[in-house]
């Protein structure tokens, strides 16, 4: 009697598990950076129907500009850089709480920065900028040993 054949769904699950074992697929943090980037892109794009331009000449210009740059571009760099650079150099990237700290800082930073512009609260804008900068500093601290360290340094 022939062995039962796996269903298509079982085959797909098997293929996904194999890819995960190979380390080809995104880790959870990088997956969420990529997802968040798309959400920020759609928010930044709202400037098109609202202002008739991605970057209007109104007071909201910095808000939409930074939704695109801080929200979309930076988070794409976080997600893709955090995924690809360890594979390019062979050095591991700092995981654990670090990527989630970086994610919390960049979300809080982008949201505060944009809200500060819309609400006209300068202090909130400054706080958002500082939080976003701390997020980039966290990313740099995670990536530097990947680029220049030995595997033992980056653990």
């Amino acid at each position: 009697m022939a062995a039962p054949q796996p269903t298509a769904a079982e085959e797909r699950l098997g293929a996904e598990a194999a890819m995960a074992r190979m380390g080809m697929t995104f880790s959870r943090d990088n997956r969420w950076f990529i997802v968040a980037a798309q959400v920020y892109l759609m928010l930044a794009g709202l400037g098109l129907p609202i202002n008739g331009s991605l970057l209007s000449d109104s007071a909201s210009r910095p808000a939409f500009l930074h939704l695109f740059t801080l929200g979309f571009l930076l988070m794409m760099i976080y997600g893709l850089g955090g995924h690809m650079l360890p594979r390019f150099t062979g050095n591991p990237i700092r995981e654990g709480a670090w990527p989630w700290l970086q994610m919390g800082l960049v979300h809080a930073g982008a949201a505060s920065f944009v809200a500060g512009y819309f609400a006209g609260w300068h202090g909130l804008t400054v706080m958002g900028a500082i939080l976003a900068w701390l997020s980039l500093a966290t990313f740099a601290a995670r990536v530097w040993p990947v680029l220049w360290g030995t595997p033992a340094d980056a653990g």
């Binding site: 850089g81 990536v143 220049w148």
Partner: peptide
């Protein structure tokens, strides 16, 4: 990864931090 390409990425991070600091100082 070629050393030159690692330099490009490292310098990018330094510029990102520098550019952010300049903007924060301007806001403050």
């Amino acid at each position: 990864m070629h050393k030159r390409n690692r330099l490009f990425v490292s310098i990018a991070l330094v510029y990102g931090l520098l550019g952010g600091l300049i903007a924060i100082s301007r806001l403050i």
